[in-house]
Design a protein around this nucleic acid. Structure first.
Lengths: 237, 237
DNA sequence: GTCTATAGTCGGATAGAC
DNA sequence: GTCTATCCGACTATAGAC
């Protein structure tokens, strides 16, 4: 928000390069772009948009400072490219699960629906807590929430999708229409997963853990799924 | 992380001013300090430590740039002073509730314990969602989680307190020893509250709300307390 | 496509008048 | 205690050699 002078360049935003010329022999360019995005994801997530500097990012990506402008057009465009990358990556992870529980069969009976919901929540826990990648994604996303940017809109898309699916399944299980109450309840389930990412510093201290590994993740998943069942059971009409 | 040169000054950190001279007639100094802290809370919360600039803060506080160094010693010291202010403010709000449920009577019977837990969670919802101040506190705290600083330690203290109390009450209700499982479950309850602060952009969009006012807060509280009861009921040994 | 060098701007901190 | 003026390091973005 500080240097809003020459925002003229950009031109070639994020993807769709090589549209003027056929794909050439070397993919050095693509590699550099990928490295820049990976480094930017990490650094934007930790320091925020303003706190991150293009020098840091270039250095972490083992690329040249000018490469950022060359490949993305500006610091801001790089930020947006990272958001797109995150959205795509997460969708790639939960997409299969989402698809498998979006079939009519998955919600044919309350039992099947319950299994589908377990599957979705379990996948969310795994995706959010199960990889170093996810750690970076989550940090980046939470930053966007704190300071909603254009990048947030990019990310919102897939969240919308997952939440809608979960909501629909929940209405089947509880046999109720979709109303504010069940919408809120769906959000509280999301919160139970998110807290382990967002308040992780607090979580680690309280649990006297040093990290959330496989064992810890399994415990967390078990507790959340038990809660989910209890909530489904306890709030039946 | 950028300008680690002259970190020499500081000297007079945050409070305890006027120890060299008796409190004088005017409290202009105290007022300026308060305004600076208020402005810094808002701006650090929104932009993060690195993203915030002392010029912005001074301007928002209607104070002079040099006043920051004069009163706090440095940008970093101001940041820490804000953390202390936040911790104190929150404790002032939940302290009474915390005290009232820390008595032996409050956990004498499972019924009383359940009421105490409701009281604590309800207060948390009110504090976190019920005031414009809380919005700022939450933003600031979440930032600290993403990028733990010295300031985080300041804030952790009161969280520890509230969590321990909640945990103890839960063990009474469930009549189980304190173990990892119940610790995790306590954190999932915290998550249900936090999500409405942390992912508020998402919440507002999904609920098609424009803000979380009294009505919305009441709905949220009801849903979370119902969940809490369901969880307590559904996970009994 | 990648690099170095640099232009132009903005940052935190300081000095010293009042 | 508060202010203006200023230093100087670090920032983003650019130009142009390779």
């Amino acid at each position: 928000m500080k240097r809003e002078k020459a925002l003229k360049p950009a031109a070639n935003a994020t993807s769709s390069r090589g549209d003027t010329e056929p794909r050439r022999r070397s993919d050095r360019g693509a590699e550099t772009r990928a490295q820049l995005i990976a480094a930017a994801l990490e650094i934007f997530g930790r320091l925020g948009y303003e706190g991150a500097t293009t020098r840091q990012i270039a250095k972490a990506a083992d690329a040249n400072l000018a490469a950022i402008v060359y490949h993305f057009g500006s610091k801001e465009a790089l930020h947006l490219a990272v958001a797109e990358h995150v959205a795509k990556s997460i969708l790639a992870r939960i997409g299969p699960t989402l698809a498998s529980i979006s079939t009519p069969e998955a919600t044919a009976t309350p039992e099947a629906a319950r299994a589908a919901l377990h599957s979705l929540v379990g996948t969310m826990v795994d995706v959010l807590l199960g990889s170093a990648d996810a750690e970076r994604w989550a940090r980046f996303i939470v930053r966007e929430q704190l300071q909603p940017n254009a990048a947030f809109d990019v990310i919102y898309g897939f969240m919308e999708n997952a939440m809608s699916t979960a909501l629909h399944i929940a209405t089947v299980i509880l046999d109720t229409p979709e109303d504010d109450e069940i919408r809120l309840r769906t959000l509280t389930v999301l919160g139970q997963v998110l807290v382990f990412r967002v308040a992780q510093t607090l979580v680690l201290r309280r649990m006297k853990w040093t990290a959330i590994g496989d064992t810890e993740r399994a415990m967390i998943k078990q507790v959340i799924l038990q809660n989910l069942d209890a909530i489904l059971e306890g709030t039946k009409p």
